[in-house]
Design a protein around this nucleic acid. Structure first.
Lengths: 234, 234
DNA sequence: GATGGAATTTGCCTTAGATCAAATAGGCGA
DNA sequence: TCGCCTATTTGATCTAAGGCAAATTCCATC
């Protein structure tokens, strides 16, 4: 395997504040892996042998319930860590991660985490900062689910995806990986039928353009208006 | 102020694996605070000057949304840390914490966290392990909200409360602090009316006994059956 | 270009649970 | 003990969104 260069990871926010020599030591222990679309990166309950950094592509993190439901926890974008069970004292992965498109990731054996954490304090600080924001995110999701209607949640989800992985095109902001109505339903706790109805309505109003596994946000502002509409419950 | 003794914290899981001398150093920097029922410990957006350990009592952690909703994030039991924004690279508290009953807490200035983390690695490891399980919890909540009906969510919430803060009485397991229908509604994303109806129905079936700001779980097993009943959505 | 399977759309019906509106019941302070 | 404030209960509606069923459309592959 060709040896990896620190330029791959320099400049990423997780590696902020780390000296070049240290970056070399870090990347020296990584191996790079290609994962084809729809292939799993790791699976729920599986022994957490490695942690990962996504270099290119998009990864969907999904939890399955015993009774066969699937809930999408988050999408990972390039530059983000994932599978960091070891940093949180877990020995197994808490969810499934599958490549939404062909991906390139770096992988480190989990047993390196403690060493990394002590040798590169900014790395661990940055990582925990990221964990903190994920915890925030998760709480925001709970709040959304408790207080907002489906329409607002779906609008929010699209805006989040557009911001996180949007690519400007002449039509509007294209969500940069294949995403089905079912996928959106799993992110927002609804059904593909309801998502389809909403997208159809929004398409009529010119807010979005969508097709098979594809969504383009045409008018983000007006979507924001929908997302922020009055929540109903007392 | 009387100086504090390490016996207050020895044996708590966050301090597992820490030498007695180190415990002394840790507790030497704490100050103990009494908080009366319904008084805030810290508030959302406020500068995170301290982090806390609950010694006695129960604390409710609540997030308020801009549009006036309140969602209960979790209840803290004795022995748990809270307000550890600094460990996650935040400078403000992410939620409100209010004493559900009269409480005793230890408080440390946030600026001590980095020192503690490097001087007492097990402390930081234990803390991050706890953060990991809170992240897990939050994800579980999202999943519950997405896939389960109100009845199951409320049953689950009661079981969780009973497990976490239940006190055995001759009637059954009493939830050991005042909790209203409204509080339960805020934990489960529903309304006090629906909670009231459920509790009434369960009372008729002899599953629980409840009164003003009081719930006793009489038959946990049968509640578990309800909690695990088929979720509906596809 | 034909064929088959998956993704999507839509209409219709149903229902869990929110909303609205009173009535009732505790518990606490005067 | 009385009165008041707050928590709770319960009934009567209403409705957002889920469930069901049947097209339809889009790709990919043969």
């Amino acid at each position: 395997m060709a040896s990896l260069d620190r330029s791959l990871i320099a400049g990423l926010s997780v590696f902020e504040g780390i000296a070049a020599a240290d970056l070399d030591r870090i990347i020296g222990q990584a191996r790079s892996v290609r994962v084809a679309r729809d292939q799993p990166l790791f699976e729920q309950e599986q022994d957490a042998h490695s942690f990962f950094l996504l270099l290119d592509g998009h990864v969907r993190v999904v939890k399955s319930t015993p009774d066969g439901h699937e809930v999408t926890v988050r999408y990972i974008s390039p530059g983000e860590l994932m599978g960091i069970a070891s940093a949180l004292g877990r020995t197994t992965y808490p969810a499934n991660a599958v490549a939404a498109v062909d991906c390139v990731v770096l992988a480190w054996p989990s047993h390196l985490w403690p060493t990394f954490a002590t040798s590169f304090p900014s790395f661990s600080a940055n990582t925990y900062k990221m964990v903190g924001s994920r915890l925030q995110d998760a709480h925001m999701r709970v709040i959304e689910m408790s207080t907002e209607q489906v329409e607002q949640r779906v609008a929010n989800a699209l805006l989040k995806l557009a911001k996180q992985s949007g690519k400007k095109t002449e039509e509007g902001i294209l969500i940069d990986f294949p995403i089905s109505r079912q996928d959106i339903a799993e992110m927002t706790g609804t059904t593909l039928h309801t998502v389809s109805r909403l997208l159809s309505a929004w398409e009529d109003q010119g807010l979005v353009k969508s097709g098979r596994q594809k969504v383009v946000v045409v008018e983000p502002h007006r979507l924001v208006v929908i997302a922020e509409a009055r929540g109903s419950k007392s």
